[in-house]
Lab assay of single mutants.
Amino acid sequence: MPVRRGHVAPQNTFLDTIIRKFEGQSRKFIIANARVENCAVIYCNDGFCELCGYSRAEVMQRPCTCDFLHGPRTQRRAAAQIAQALLGAEERKVEIAFYRKDGSCFLCLVDVVPVKNEDGAVIMFILNFEVVMEKDMVGSPAHDTNHRGPPTSWLAPGRAKTFRLKLPALLALTARESSVRSGGAGGAGAPGAVVVDVDLTPAAPSSESLALDEVTAMDNHVAGLGPAEERRALVGPGSPPRSAPGQLPSPRAHSLNPDASGSSCSLARTRSRESCASVRRASSADDIEAMRAGVLPPPPRHASTGAMHPLRSGLLNSTSDSDLVRYRTISKIPQITLNFVDLKGDPFLASPTSDREIIAPKIKERTHNVTEKVTQVLSLGADVLPEYKLQAPRIHRWTILHYSPFKAVWDWLILLLVIYTAVFTPYSAAFLLKETEEGPPATECGYACQPLAVVDLIVDIMFIVDILINFRTTYVNANEEVVSHPGRIAVHYFKGWFLIDMVAAIPFDLLI
Rank of each mutant, 00 (worst) to 15 (best):
M308V: 12
S182P: 05
A78M: 04
T145L: 09
P352G: 07
G6E: 13
L210Q: 13
G149D: 10
T201D: 07
D213Y: 03
I82H: 01
Q376M: 03
L87E: 14
G183D: 11
R27M: 09
N45K: 01
N38T: 06
T371Y: 08
D111H: 14
P114R: 04
A382Q: 15
K21G: 06
E130P: 01
L167I: 14
L210D: 08
N146K: 06
N12T: 11
G158P: 12
A156M: 06
R181Y: 06
L109G: 15
I30M: 06
K362Q: 07
A350T: 07
P352Y: 08
L378S: 03
L385P: 10
R76F: 12
E130Y: 05
L167Q: 15
G381Y: 13
A169W: 15
R4W: 12
E23C: 06
R27E: 04
E177Y: 06
G262R: 11
V131M: 15
R271G: 11
L343F: 13
P237L: 12
C105A: 12
A244S: 05
P298K: 09
L378K: 04
T145I: 06
L378A: 05
A190Q: 15
P227M: 13
A79Y: 02
S209E: 08
A190R: 06
F68W: 10
P347S: 05
A285K: 07
K362C: 12
V222D: 05
R148A: 08
P297W: 07
S140R: 07
I18D: 01
C64I: 09
F129V: 01
T201N: 06
R252T: 15
G184H: 05
A80I: 14
S250T: 07
A217W: 08
F348I: 13
D136C: 08
P334R: 07
S243L: 09
E134K: 13
A188C: 06
F98V: 01
R164V: 07
T65D: 05
S178I: 01
A169I: 01
G226P: 07
C49K: 03
D346M: 05
S239D: 14
A40T: 10
A360P: 15
R356I: 15
K93Y: 07
L127P: 01
S179P: 08
A121G: 13
G294Q: 13
R292Q: 14
I358P: 12
D144G: 14
I363A: 09
A40M: 15
L338V: 09
